[in-house]
Amino acid sequence: MKRGAALAAAAGALAASVAVSGPSSKVAWTVETVRLVRSGDAAHGKKLHEDCAGCHGDAGVIDTPDVPNLAGQDALYTFKQLSDYKEGTRGSPIMGEAAKPLSEKDMADLAAFYASLPSARAPAAVPAQASAVVPLARLGDGARLMPACDACHGARGAGDSGSYGMPKLSGQKFDDMATQLTTFRSGERANDVYRVMRDVCKHLTDAEIAGLAAYYSGTEGKPPAAPTPAK
């Protein structure tokens, strides 16, 4: 019995190690893929969005704390996340199912639709909780080999059209942002090519995660409890 349990555990560990090896995302920004996303049909995307509106809101904005706002999001980023959910490189039971029936063209159309919506912007004032992390967000930290968050995500997360697939962070929710940073830190979320976010987040303290979530969301909150280990 004990032996059987140990064997099952070993098999589980093996399955987990097989699951994590391989590329962290199958999306590559080839000319064809970038063209496909840039030429997405927002009108068709709007029709597809009817199935998503329940959680993400009619206009891509919703009050639910741990559901991201999609309105105004960078189209390449949305496309990549949908593709990663479908391929399983970003794990989520709900989004995995939701993305399964989508074709590449559907994902490009949805991404174009969300990019066309006006985004929820963070309030201009920086919350007090974020004041300590402003230098980190703007300049990075050389001692910990951390690049500035704003270098890729744009000034205060406004986005950077020159980088492929970097999300806008401005106007996201405190809880969702804190969850993403925490799960990158633990490695539970691992669809960042070349471990970019995992390598940055592994240095972050709980207080810094809360500060960064406050900086980009414009609202204060509590850092989330440690997430459950990756399945």
Partner: peptide, 13 residues
């Protein structure tokens, strides 16, 4: 092909 670098065997993560 730099766009597919992470999918090549040599420069895989």
């Amino acid at each position: 092909d730099s766009t597919r670098l992470h999918l090549t065997p040599e420069f895989a993560e």
